[in-house]
């Protein structure tokens, strides 16, 4: 089980699922975006086990 931050570069539909190509550092992965109805390219999202479960709010900094 794995939790990572990733940036959406593209949103598309595949096999009836809302999918995204997301970028982690320099690597790109395909993940379902079904649980984030309003996520758009450019958004950073949190992935849990290969599924995006939350948008990351861009204005938060430590």
């Amino acid at each position: 089980m794995n939790l990572i931050y990733a940036k959406i570069v593209e949103v598309f539909i595949e096999e009836d699922m809302r999918m995204g190509r997301v970028q982690v550092g320099g690597a790109i992965k395909k993940v379902p975006l079904d649980l984030l109805t309003e996520a758009r390219p450019g958004d950073t999202v949190l992935l849990a086990d290969g599924v995006a479960i939350s948008k990351v709010r861009p204005d938060e900094s430590p």
Binding site: M1, L3, E15, M17, L35, D49, G50, V51, I53
Partner: peptide
């Protein structure tokens, strides 16, 4: 897993039934 993993696990079962 805990609640964090539940959505991806649920999604796999949901999609399996649907497809």
């Amino acid at each position: 897993g805990f609640e964090t993993t539940a959505p991806s696990n649920a999604m796999s079962v949901w999609q399996a039934k649907k497809q």
